[in-house]
Amino acid sequence: MKENRASLGYDFIKGFIKENPTFALAVGMCPTLAVTTCLVNGFWMGVAVIFVLTFSNVLISLLRKLIPDEIRIPVFIIMIATPVVIVELVMKAYLPEMYSILGIFVPLIVVNCIVFHRAEAFAYRNPVLNSAMDALGSGMAFTLNLMLIGGIREFLGTGQIAIGNVVFPKAPLFEPAAVMLTPPGGFITLGVLMALLNIVIARVGKRKQA
């Protein structure tokens, strides 16, 4: 297959809506819930996933004609585990605090269904540049999702959103609901977001029909 330059833009864009990892494909649920107690955590987790995803997608796409079909799963695992180890070492060295907050969910990127899903569904069948765009699109959409969920939970759970030293608003406007930072809050936030999305999609679909 030759590079398909015309579809590069689409390969990037589709990750945000049609193949949105969280809201359309529902993959990578564990980190989506585990690290989204605040916006900043979500951002760094997202960056780690973007790196791993791009690395593995490009590598798999480059070697896609050399990988025998029967053993592709173990080969994928190695190609995904390599960038994960790189991320682990880099984070440990330069962002030790964030590394300890994200905890086991950094090494667990290796079994993140998003990475696997993109390798199997896209990179194994498409040229390098397209695979790179696919990875960047999916990864950035995933990061945005994590930041959205993290932002909502942080705002409702602490009354504020903190980015570095900047805190907004200066004092909480209401009594923060600590439950939003706990597992029940995480599940319910994501569930309600998906429910609202489904309702909107159903409404739009109906209007189109009418």
């Binding site: 529902a26 029940p184 599940f187 319910i188 994501l190 569930g191 309600v192 998906m194 429910a195 489904n198």
Partner: peptide
Amino acid sequence: FPLALISTG
């Protein structure tokens, strides 16, 4: 997924 997640919560 929406109801499964709300239930899990």
